[in-house]
Design a protein around this nucleic acid. Structure first.
Length: 939
DNA sequence: TTTATCCCCTA
DNA sequence: GTAGGGGATAAAT
């Protein structure tokens, strides 16, 4: 947006009042007057005013009928009356808006939506930048961007999202702003009592409009739509035009007000002070009297610099699109060159050599970097300029290409020079590929995926297409566009050079552009910059090495186990068929449910989230005393799970070149900062049951080597002790006692030696429950006690460990005030739904807020340890690169190594020391190590 | 062949 | 109650 453009903010007052009412707890002031909604609205208003708009209006509905009621008498007939606690807050709200000096618009006979729509369109036509502040998605129909700084944007302060371009609307709804009315007409609106096409939700509506463009197009082709939903559409045809009229926001209403008359008057400070005092808004009062708000001035400035904006709820969230000060070159089209001659290659090598930093990207024929063959390389040295060097395109008629060895030899000095800064998007993949083609990359300095992840882990996915859309407002060429998808996909080596260049060079170009946008955002928040620079970037090569190392699997052992499991499954299946009196598919929850609950009439005590009778473990356990079948099913399921997920799968995953299994760690996979593992997932290998644990015996060391497993003892609880500073908990850890036993002793008022097994179990459940933000309900379920009893346990716990209670409350508060929580090392997790009106969503966000600092700090700590241990191990590699020990697995709080037998002692001492020293907390970090010929023995 | 649902494995 | 990956079925296509 142009900085000099005038700005108008139109606030949809009614939608805000409702939103705040449902989103916030039912607060009241000392006199018992309800204040929850008021509080939310006031915070939103203060945030809006801080942005100093030139014009602003607070628009509310006037009583009385409007044109929509004339058209359709049932309009809004489903609306429940306004709750009393909300009604009571309407007048005070208007008083506050008035005192703030903000114009209030209430036009008889015209809905607030239409007032807003009309003013917005008038203002935009005059080149004024309009922001409509609302939680009503219908306004998306008005969104558009304009070069002159005009245009209409939407902010939804519930989600913190901002839509200020056609792309943003498309991203959110899958249709363009011009199609929104058609989209809404098809779906209908239950709240306003406007029925749409039955069973037609957002997905279907967007799909039809993508195909037929407009509502008229859909109506014209109604006969072409098959199935039940086609019948529903044809049934609704008659009323769709009316729907369209009802959901269209009018922009041509006759109004007395003009946008430029909506100036902010001077605030009436004394009235405000009185109102704020009466309703107990301490923060607002403080601000009124010149004090800082909840966010300190410098913090605020930093956040703004970093492209964050304040929203109604007072929490920061990254803005959706390109910043106003972003270099326009960053969104321009690129010029791409396909390099097929030595002269071109020399030219590009010269450019790479002259550049301070460059982006690179590999094209291959496989998603698995441990199997992929290099097909081409792309480079970019400045936004808009990139090349693609094809190396192995082999379709009929493919132009001659440079020799792969020649090209790689020419590039090696650049790629392996630690002094030359390289950047990529998910570069770990490219590091694998290049290493396997004889180039060890050094100087891999920046990764846009990790920049985005550290900057805001939840704002977007971190693949390049999503990043380009969000941070550049740019639509990339999709892989499927050039190579097709599904069964019809061709390998990249068969993509025509023109298409390949368009796609591949763009990857390098966009990576560089993204870095130019993301790096300053990170730099503006020093704590995030440090997490990125000191943890995530150094970790890239460590993970690459672990993945490349792989783990040795005893395939014969797994096959034996598969055969054994298979036999037992068959026996269980026969028994089940006998008990049921007929055969059925034991793997089908549906068939099983029909059998148990319909035929056998067993009670359905547990429901699935969708309301079906559940056949999960809890449900089957509950009826196991009434019939033999449930136990047999449980037995079968346990065996089937082990076989399909583990014993069968793992031996398939052995890499033919290395003879080992190479997992893939996702560094931007979990919002808390944890790693995730897939293909195969080696972070969920069974351990709890005897049969399951046996799978670990197949994770072996080669002859002469041993498996060493080192894990942190109770790391998350220790972090809770550190973060809360609770004296009792800190002392318990300092004493080195069994923490669950110590907790039980405290809570039940016994000597440590007198705690019985049941008390310890309860204490353990409380300890874990706390870290997950549990409720009494959850604990009761876990322990099989009444809710009241569970509540008593929790109360008792908090009375013994008051620091923990305070910590929980502080954490929730921080989440509400800033919109994020932090780890000890400054990593942030944003809680998108912390102010959601939906109670379940909000409660979930609060639980996540409690858990994230602990889970995230633990993740930071083990990552630091991995970097340190890797550095130490690197010093022990001999001339050929062979190390006496390899790091082979990370399982959240555990590191697993494969080591020469005579190096085990050194390894255990060094690794446990380095892991324990990875953070200085108020409590010691304790590391346990085990050694064996396989992973099971090493525990 | 893709998508949603249910179930279950780990820390 | 937190954070993940993934298999099998069944429906939609």
């Amino acid at each position: 947006m142009n900085d000099t453009a005038r700005r108008l903010v139109l606030i949809d007052g009614s939608s805000y009042l409702y939103r705040a009412f449902h989103a916030l707890p039912p607060l009241s002031n000392d006199d018992g007057e309800p204040t929850g909604a008021l509080f939310g609205v006031v915070n939103m208003l203060r945030a809006t005013l801080k942005e100093k708009p030139d014009y602003v209006a607070f628009v509310v509905d006037a009583p009385g009928k409007t044109f929509r009621d004339e058209l359709y008498p049932e309009y809004k007939a489903n609306r429940p009356p306004m709750p009393d606690e909300l009604r009571a807050q309407v007048q005070p709200m208007c008083d506050i808006v008035e005192a703030l000096g903000m114009p209030i618009l209430r036009v008889p006979g015209v809905e607030a939506d239409d007032v807003i729509g009309t003013l917005a369109v008038q203002a935009a036509a005059e080149g004024i930048g309009v922001t409509i502040s609302t939680s009503d998605k219908d306004f998306a129909q008005l969104v558009h961007a304009r070069g002159d700084g005009g245009g209409i944007a939407l902010v939804n302060t519930m989600s913190g999202s901002r839509m200020d371009s056609e792309q943003a609307v498309v991203e959110k709804f899958g249709v363009r702003p011009g199609q929104i009315v058609d989209y809404l007409a098809l779906m209908g609106d239950t709240v306003d009592n406007v029925p749409g096409v039955r069973k037609c939700g957002p997905k279907t509506a967007a799909k039809w409009l993508a195909e037929y463009e407009t509502l008229d197009g859909v109506i014209a082709h109604a006969d072409a739509i098959k199935g039940k939903i086609g019948d529903n559409l044809r049934e609704a045809l008659d009323r769709l035009p009316l729907n369209r009229t009802l959901v269209t926001i009018r922009t041509d209403v006759d109004l007395e007000q003009t946008p430029t008359a909506l100036s902010l008057r001077e605030a009436h400070t004394d009235t405000l002070r009185a109102l704020y005092t009466r309703y107990g808004f301490k923060q607002a009062l403080k601000e009124l009297d010149g004090g800082a708000g909840t966010v300190s001035g410098t913090e605020q400035a930093r956040a703004e610099q970093a492209g964050m904006r304040n929203t109604a709820a007072g929490y920061a969230k990254a803005s959706v699109t390109v910043d106003g000060d972003a270099d326009p070159a960053l969104a321009a089209a690129g010029v791409y060159e396909c390099v097929t001659t030595h002269a071109q290659l020399d030219d590009w090598i010269g450019r790479l050599r002259a550049a301070d930093e460059f982006a690179f990207d590999c094209e291959t024929d496989s998603l698995d970097p441990m199997r992929a063959n290099l097909v081409g390389l792309s480079f970019s040295t400045q936004p808009g300029a990139a090349c693609y060097i094809p190396l192995a395109h082999d379709y009929p008629g493919a132009p001659a290409q440079l020799d792969r060895t020649v090209v790689l030899d020419a590039l090696r000095p650049l790629l392996s020079d630690p002094g030359r800064r390289k950047l990529g998007q998910h570069g770990k993949y490219d590091l694998h590929v290049l290493r396997r083609h004889g180039i060890e990359v050094h100087g891999y300095a920046d990764d846009t995926m990790l920049e985005s992840f550290v900057y805001n882990a939840t704002a977007t996915r971190h693949d390049m297409d999503s990043l380009a859309r969000r941070y550049l407002g740019y639509e990339t060429v999709k892989y499927a566009d050039v190579a097709g998808k599904g069964a019809k996909a061709i390998p990249f080596s068969q993509v025509a050079l023109d298409d390949a260049t368009r796609y591949a060079a763009e990857d390098a170009d966009v990576t560089l552009r993204l870095h130019r946008v993301l790096a300053p955002k990170l730099a503006a928040v020093p704590s995030l910059e440090r997490v990125y620079r000191e943890i995530e970037m150094p970790l890239v090569k460590v993970l690459e090495r672990i993945e490349a190392n792989g783990v040795m699997i005893d395939g014969d052992e797994l096959r034996r186990q598969s055969a054994d499991l298979g036999k037992r499954m068959l026996a269980a299946q026969r028994k089940a068929t006998g008990l049921a009196g007929r055969s059925f598919n034991l793997d089908s929850p549906r068939q099983l449910g029909a059998l148990l609950f319909d035929e056998l009439k067993l009670p359905a005590l547990v429901k699935t989230p969708k309301g079906q009778p559940s056949t999960n473990e809890e449900a089957l356990e509950a009826i196991a005393d009434q019939h033999e079948l449930p136990r047999v099913i449980l037995e079968y399921r346990g065996l089937a799970k082990l076989r399909s997920t583990y014993t069968d799968k793992l031996s398939e995953m052995v890499n033919p070149d290395t003879g080992r299994v190479h997992t893939s760690y996702h560094q931007a996979g979990a919002a808390t900062g944890r790693l995730a593992s897939s293909d195969p997932n080696l972070q969920n290998i069974p351990i709890r049951t005897e049969d399951g644990r046996r799978i670990r015996t197949a994770f072996v060391a080669p002859p002469g080597r041993r498996i060493v497993a080192c894990d942190y003892s109770q790391i998350e609880l220790r972090i809770m002790a550190h973060l809360s500073g609770d004296e009792g908990l800190v002392n318990a850890f300092a004493s080195g006692a069994d923490i669950h036993r110590a907790t039980a002793a405290e809570v039940f008022g016994k000597a440590i030696g007198d705690v019985d097994a049941n008390e310890r179990r309860a204490a353990k459940a409380i300890n874990f429950g706390l870290m997950y933000g549990m409720s009494a309900f959850g604990l009761a379920r876990q322990l099989g006690v009444s809710r009241g009893e569970a509540q008593d346990y929790i109360a008792l716990y908090f009375s013994r460990y008051p620091g923990v209670r305070d910590f929980m409350e502080r954490t929730r508060e921080q989440a509400r005030e800033r919109g994020y929580v932090e780890t000890v090392f400054g990593r942030r997790l944003y809680l998108e739904h912390i102010h959601a009106r939906n109670q379940g969503l909000r409660a979930g966000a609060e639980r996540a807020a409690i858990n994230a600092p602990m889970q995230g700090t633990a993740a930071d700590i083990i990552k630091r340890a991995m970097i340190d241990v890797d550095r130490w191990l690197a010093g022990h590699r001999d001339g050929s690169g062979r190390a006496p020990a390899l790091m082979i697995l990370q399982v959240h709080d555990e590191l697993v190594f494969e080591a020469e037998a005579n190096f085990v002692e050194t390894l255990v001492a060094e690794v446990s020391g380095r892991m324990a020293a990875a953070a200085e907390l108020r409590v010691p970090l304790v590391v346990d190590c085990g050694v064996g010929d396989n992973w099971e023995e090493a525990h």
